[in-house]
Amino acid sequence: MTSNVDIRDLSISFGEGPAAVKVLPGVTFSVEAGECFGLVGESGSGKSTVLRCISMLTDFWQGSITVGGRDIRQIPRLERCRLLQMVFQDPYGSLHPRQSVRTTLSEPLKIHGLDDHEGRMRRVIRDVGLTADFIDRFPHQMSGGQRQRIAIARALILEPSLLLLDEPTSALDVSVQAEILNLLVRLREERGLTYIMVTHDLAVVDHMCDRFAVMLHGEVTEVLPRTAIDGNHATHPYARELIGASLEYEGAL
């Protein structure tokens, strides 16, 4: 199963009354089924918020979001969990501090009535480059990158067709990042997964994505093909600045 994503006039405000702040004034973009779509831009511009809206973790938004042609609001919660999963930006916050890895990974299997818990857990732990003895650890007994890999494993274990990835590899050393990115590429080839991936690393966008959106202050300034990075073919001034800075950052400063 594959899932295209269509986002129209997505807007959201936080706070009430006069203190309310519109964080996304009206975001529109679409992602094809099987595409890897990048979301880059200014820190605080609303990238994580867009992912939280798609996954319905935040549900008081306006506009429309469809996945596979269906209104995301109309999809029952359990079905939504099989359809899409999210990997959060900060792994410590997203894992329950008093839940072992076993509980974290087996809970969703139980809820969805899947068999062979032990086998599925071992496979997914291996896929993210950890060993089976991590199954009995707690979050505080793992390094930042190990926690992040558990968070990725949790997202993968239900085999969703849409993955929302919020800086999935920024807490990992580049060798582990390479393993995770190779895994994501392979899963996409094998299962036709769709990815929306937030990252600050344009080399990762260039390596993984087909197209990407550049966000600034709640708005999508421009959607570009990944080929626009090398040589900086952006037209919006902020997108040009960001790509220019990244090219400079990667070369000698």
Binding site: D173, A178, N182, D201, A203, D206, H207, E250
Partner: peptide
Amino acid sequence: LLAAQPRIGDRRKMLSV
């Protein structure tokens, strides 16, 4: 580590692990 780093403009292939 240095070999595993993706770089802008590289030809797409499996990253070295």
